[in-house]
Design a protein around this nucleic acid. Sequence first.
DNA 1: CTGTTAGCGCCTTCAT
DNA 2: ATGAAGGCGCTAACAG
Lengths: 328, 328
Amino acid sequence: MNIYDVAKQAGVSTTTVSRVMNGSDKVSEKTMNKVRKVMAELNYAPSQIAVGLATNSTKTIGVMLPDVRDIFHATVAFLIERKMSKRGYNCILCNTSEEDRNEVDYLNSLYGKKVDGIILVGSSYHKKSIDEAYDQWEKKIPLVLINALSTTGTASVICDEKDGMMQALAHLKKRGKKHPVFVRETADRQKRSSVTKANGFTEAYKEIFGAGEAKIYSCQPNKEEYSRLLEEIHKEAADAVLFTNDMSCAVFLKSMEAKGLKAPDDYALIGFNNSSISDITTPALTTIDHHVDAHCEKAIEKIYQMIQGKAVEKVTYIRPDLVIKETT
Amino acid sequence: MNIYDVAKQAGVSTTTVSRVMNGSDKVSEKTMNKVRKVMAELNYAPSQIAVGLATNSTKTIGVMLPDVRDIFHATVAFLIERKMSKRGYNCILCNTSEEDRNEVDYLNSLYGKKVDGIILVGSSYHKKSIDEAYDQWEKKIPLVLINALSTTGTASVICDEKDGMMQALAHLKKRGKKHPVFVRETADRQKRSSVTKANGFTEAYKEIFGAGEAKIYSCQPNKEEYSRLLEEIHKEAADAVLFTNDMSCAVFLKSMEAKGLKAPDDYALIGFNNSSISDITTPALTTIDHHVDAHCEKAIEKIYQMIQGKAVEKVTYIRPDLVIKETT
DNA sequence: CTGTTAGCGCCTTCAT
DNA sequence: ATGAAGGCGCTAACAG
C-alpha cells in the first residue's frame, strides 16, 4: 500500500499523487479529485518515514527532562507536546535522571532518529564538558535549553531565580521573620536551577537581612532526612525555610507536623513553581511561580525559528512571582 | 556523512560497513577494526530513518494518555519510557484529553510515523465506534491498552477495580462507617476506569452494606463544586467518600477543611492510586494502590511480543491493594 | 569473508 | 498540467 498503488489506481504518475498530497497548485481540479478519491478508497496513509528520508525532516522533536513524574517537568512535557502538536509535530520523551542512560546517550539517539530539534530541560551548571557538548550539538541540530544555561551561548530560556528570592525574602522580613534558611535536594546540587536559586538566596539574604550568614542545606526530600534537618536548623534559630520546589516543601511540612510544629508560626515555608501541590497541603504553601507556560512558549518559539534556519536571541530571562498562601 | 563515506574511507563496500554496524559475525576481525576506526574518526552516526525505511522498524513506540500532568499518567509515561529505553526504544508522548486533537488523530499520526507499536492508556467504555476503531487499528499495528477494555478483544491490562472497592468498603465497615458514597470526575464519566470503579462500588456496596442505595456523584474536582457536593452528601447522611484518584480526594479534603470538617471523623476518605499526593496531605490519604508498575511491565511485555509477531494473552487483570493511612 | 545490485516509499528537478 | 528518472541512506538477497 504505497504511492505507486495510488498512482496506478488513479491512472496517473506518482509525481502527481505526491503533488496532490502536498497541495501543489499545478494540478487540475479533475485529476486532483480523482486522486483524492482513490486515496480515500484505498485508505492510503503516506509513510512519514519515507517522506522524512526524502525531505530530511521528521516533524518530530525530542524533549529531554530529568523525570516526568515531577509535577513541574510533567507540566513542561504537557505544554510542549500540546503546543508542538498544534504545529504538526510529535515529541519523543526522554527521562534523563536515571543512571543507565545519560544525556549524551539520549542526544545521540535523538540525533540518529533525525528529530528536527531538541528541547532540553535542566542541566548541570557550568560544567565545562557539558557546555562544550552542547556547543557541539548545537552545530548539528537545533537545541534549546530550559532552566539551563551554557557558557558557550546555546539558546536557552531561564528563570530569574535571584529575583524570586528577593521577593520571597522581602516578604518574610515583612512577616517579621529574622533568619530564613535555604534547602535544596542533594541530587540536584550541581543543577543550574538549584545552584542559581541557592546563589540567589545568598545574595538576597545579604541585601535584605544584611548581617549574618545565609545558611544552605542539602537533603534528600524524605521524612528521615528532614527530621534530622529540623534539629539542625533549630540549633541555628532559623524561623523560615525556602525550597527549590513545592514537593520538597510539602514533605518538609509533613515532617514538621510529625513533630508537632506549625507553619508559619514555628517555621514559615516557601516552595517553588506554584504547582498544584501547593494547593493541597494544609496549610497551603506560599510559593514562587516559575511561569512555566511562558518558558515553554518561548522555548518553542526559539526551536521553531531555529528549525527554519532563522537566528534567535540566545538567552531569555523570565521573571518569577511570589504567590502568598498560608505558610508565611 | 553517510555509509558511503565510511565505506570509501575504509576501502570496503557499504555492505561490509552495514555488517559491522549490525554485528554480523561474517566479517574478519581486521576489516571490522578498520571500519570501526573509520566510523569513530568520521564521527559517523547512521541515519535511523534510513534504517527504518529499509528494515520497516523504527525502534519507537507511541504512548497515548489523557494528560501527563496527572501524577498517575506521569508515572505511566515515566515507567514505560524507562523500560522501553532499556530495550533500545524511544517513546512518542501524546496527550489525548484536549479537544483539538483526539485519539484517532494521534493514532493516524503515529501510524504514519511507522512506530513499532502503541500503548494507549484510558479510554471510553464500551463505546461501539471506539471498540471497532481499536479492532481496525490492531490489525495494522501492535496495540496494547492500559486501563481500557475493548469488547472486540484488543490486548489490554486492567485493574480489578471491583476488588479494590470490596477492600475499601470492608475496611470502612470495620471502622464503623454506615453510608459511604462515591464521587467521580465529570470529565471521566464515560472512561472505562471511572465506570468500572463506579460499578464496582455499587456491587461492593450491595454485598457489604446490604440495604440502601449506593450513591454516585459526578463533579469537577474543584473547591466550588466540592463545596456544593458537601452540602448534598450531608443531606444524605453520608459518612465516607471514595474517589477515582488521589488528587480529587486531596482537593475534597481541602474543601472539608474550609468548612471546619475533619477526616476521618466527619467523613472518612479513600483515594485511588497510592500516588505521592496521598502522602503529603494532612491527614495522609487512605488510598487504593493500583500497582502501576505491574501494569506497565505487563503492557510492555505484551507489546514486545506483538512486535515480534507472537500471540499474547488478551486481557490481564491486576488486583489492587488498599493502603490504610490517616483518612479512615 | 566480501561485493554487486535491487529495493524501502517518497520527493524533486527537468523535460514535455 | 503531467511524467520520467534519479536520489535520500541503509539493508538484504544473491553471487563469488
